[in-house]
Amino acid sequence: MAGPSAIKDRAPRHSEKERERLKELDHNRPEEHRTPRLVYEDFTPEGLKWDLATKWPSAGIMSSEAGIVLGSHGMGKDSIMRRLGHTKQIVGRDSNAISRRTSECFIVRGARVSAYLQNTKISFRTVL
Rank of each mutant, 00 (worst) to 15 (best):
I7M: 02
V69F: 01
R83T: 05
D42I: 12
R10L: 15
R93W: 01
S103L: 05
I80G: 06
L70F: 10
G76W: 10
P12F: 08
R101P: 08
H33Q: 15
E16R: 09
P57L: 04
Y40W: 15
V91Q: 13
I68K: 02
G74R: 12
H14T: 11
E65M: 11
A66E: 02
G76Y: 01
S95F: 15
I61C: 07
E41W: 07
E18S: 08
E65K: 12
K121E: 14
L117N: 02
I80M: 04
P36I: 08
T120F: 08
R21G: 00
Y116R: 08
E65S: 13
I61Y: 04
E41K: 09
A66G: 01
R93N: 08
L117I: 11
K49A: 13
I90K: 05
D9Q: 14
D51S: 11
M75V: 15
R10K: 14
G3H: 10
R93E: 07
W50F: 15
R10W: 04
L22R: 12
T54N: 14
M62T: 14
P57T: 04
E24G: 04
L48F: 09
I80C: 06
Q118T: 15
H27Q: 03
S58I: 12
P45R: 03
E18R: 09
F124I: 09
D94M: 11
E104W: 03
F124H: 13
K121D: 01
E20R: 14
S123Y: 02
V91P: 00
S15K: 00
Q89F: 10
E31M: 10
P30Y: 00
L70V: 04
S72I: 00
F106Y: 03
K121T: 14
G74H: 06
P45D: 02
I68C: 07
T120H: 03
P36C: 01
G74P: 06
V127N: 02
D42C: 07
N96L: 10
Q118C: 14
L52E: 03
S114N: 15
R34Y: 04
S79M: 14
E104R: 09
M1Y: 02
G85I: 06
H14W: 13
R83A: 11
I80N: 03
D9F: 06
E24R: 09
E104F: 15
I7H: 12
P12S: 09
P57C: 04
V69M: 07
E24K: 14
S123W: 08
